[in-house]
Design a protein around this nucleic acid. Structure first.
Lengths: 352, 352
DNA sequence: CCTCCTTAATGAAACGTTACAATGCTTGGT
DNA sequence: ACCAAGCATTGTAACGTTTCATTAAGGAGG
């Protein structure tokens, strides 16, 4: 029977107008203490709960920000999400977390959803297949910040220098004496993947090596299963063509590669060394602790949310910024033949 | 200038009434093809986007379901979330994912948020500290389904038999000859933790052992850091009091324990065996592959969403159900002294 | 030519808030 | 006594949809 208690019911029970109830809710200081108490009493007596839809309709926008990630089950993105969520909460905003799963169609559906909800803004790691959809959204006045992906001038983004990261990774492998490398990752529509590869190629070039020193094994997605498939293909190559080191586009792929190689009794790092990327928490505790390139995950999310809020507040003009963090190489057992203990997560951090 | 294109603008451009536009949107078949096309043309010409707030206000409820989990960075919950999300999508609903972080205060804030948004229903793994808040919500007509936690009669829940799971785990350790066990997990306000412990105790009893055979090391949360701290405390006990096997309330804790023991050069499983719980994807690829108790994670989420939707559709009366899945023991290297290859994720599955 | 049906389209009233301008009521100063 | 100023409160018009009862326009049957 109390089906939906509205501001009206509260008003009549407290013997005031709806406007006063609204005031109690939004600007308690301007209403007389006695009235305020009466209203508050009515509110709790009736179990009144504000209707956000109505508030949003009135306000013309919601208190949400959208966060569209490529894969919720990837710890990299959940850490980014936490960072964004924490900052959003500080500003009284909630985050709608959307999982595009690297599928353009899903991405589109979620963008539609977010626009329909009149979100304050959108944080997104794009699949890369809807290039100007994001511009349309911006044109409609909704701030968009790219996450983990560098934007062109005139757009906001928060990213890590993936080219540099790829360079760090390949350089590390070359320094360890490897000369037959493989890059495992994909699809190349993801800029992260392309950039990390570019970085690796740049490193090869600097070392005076030919591009052919790096075999490219493309995967349909950046997850454990894809890594396993790719490793199987690599393992089946004739021994003299087989790479001695594999640079994976992210840690999930690297873990997949590791698992498959181990299953086939190919020793890591002795026969094949493995590099991951992201340095997710589980990289350190892997069967063979993974060497990886660390990204400031939570900071990435936080900074992105900051930029978004900054833009949405600046009614006038807002200076778009591209924030770039530097990646950091973390060396562990998977690339280190001389590591002390095959199991220990012994770790050294090398420069930023 | 196109600031906010509304149904009205579309209507006037197409030369029809707003009602017709609404019909085109919601029941296209009842409007004449010619008019329909005209309206659709206007919609795309103006870049019209439906305003969900207004729709929801009108409808009295949103197209969201809320999912409140204890820890988004725990892969167990992201898998559950995916399951729930998939089913929700099939019904045109979106999921608001909320991370209580095991903190009652955050949980409360999110429940408020969800109620204000008039969500269709709430899926929650409760912290256990707001026992009747959920009943209040139910009383207001919002379906609530407990996830990963068994509910009393008259409420809906989807869970895995944690007592049985705890029993499986402890029985496995006892069969391996261990007689000094430790249980690591907490807080005990989480029913999962209590149930898993109860299962272990039940197994001890059946084996004719005293409760004192199981040392209890409580942790403040179920994450890697807590596991490391607990392992440090265990490691510092005099050798003859030190357990020979540790049963962890979840895999994150187990990974923490594993990392800390390895750091201290305590061999796993030779000196101390470790059991996890949940069988998250990373358990198999851990430094020492973790023996664990597998839960049907995605199914859990899916089934929960199913129950929720079922209840929200049944305007009349709905039969509350408690769905219970059976856990499954997965034996790997962390408890298996005779495993073939210290690194391989070699795996055997034992009964359900 | 009138009536009765069917199909298309419309007008207007909600839905629950909020903000703005307006109203009363006090109070203090002159 | 009167006015100005301040405070507390209120009426009411939005916000953008959807829905329901209506109207209008043809067409078929008599």
């Amino acid at each position: 029977m109390d089906g939906q208690v509205g501001i009206k019911d509260v008003a009549s029970r407290a013997g005031v107008s709806t406007a006063t109830v609204s005031n109690v809710l939004n600007r308690p200081h301007i209403v007389a203490p006695a009235t305020r108490d009466r209203v508050l009493a009515a509110i709790s007596a009736l179990g009144f709960i504000r209707n956000e839809s109505a508030r949003q309709l009135r306000a013309g926008r919601s208190r949400f920000i959208g966060l569209v990630v490529l894969d919720v089950t990837n710890p990299f993105f959940t850490d980014v999400a936490r960072g964004a969520e924490d900052l959003a909460n500080e500003f009284g905003l909630a985050v709608i977390l959307c999982n595009s799963d690297e599928q353009p169609a899903r991405e589109t559906r979620y963008l539609d959803l977010l626009e329909q909800h009149r979100v304050r803004g959108i944080l997104i790691t794009p699949t890369g297949s809807n290039p100007h959809r994001l511009d349309e959204i911006r044109a409609r006045g909704i701030p968009v910040v790219l996450v983990d992906r560098h934007a062109r001038r005139g757009r906001c983004s928060v990213s890590v220098d993936d080219v540099h990261g790829g360079d760090l990774a390949a350089t590390h492998l070359l320094e360890r004496g490897h000369r037959r490398l493989a890059f495992v990752g994909g699809p190349f529509t993801l800029h992260q993947v392309q950039d990390r590869l570019d970085g690796a190629l740049q490193s090869l070039k600097r070392a005076g090596l030919d591009e052919s020193a790096l075999h490219i094994e493309e995967t349909p997605a950046l997850n454990v299963a894809s890594g396993m498939d790719a490793a199987a293909r690599l393992a089946e190559r004739p021994a003299h063509q087989r790479p001695t080191a594999v640079f994976c586009a992210n840690d999930l792929v690297a873990l997949g590669v590791l698992q498959e190689l181990t299953r086939r009794h190919i020793a890591v790092p002795e026969e094949i060394a493995i590099m991951g990327y992201d340095d997710i928490a589980f990289a350190a505790s892997a069967a063979v602790p993974l060497t990886s390139v660390r990204q400031p995950r939570a900071q990435l999310g936080r900074a992105a949310a900051e930029l978004l809020i900054e833009e949405s507040r600046a009614d006038g003009h807002h200076k778009h910024r591209q924030v770039v963090f530097e990646p950091e190489l973390v060396v562990r057992g998977s690339t280190d033949m001389v590591h002390l203990d095959g199991r220990a997560g012994l770790e050294m951090t090398v420069e930023g």
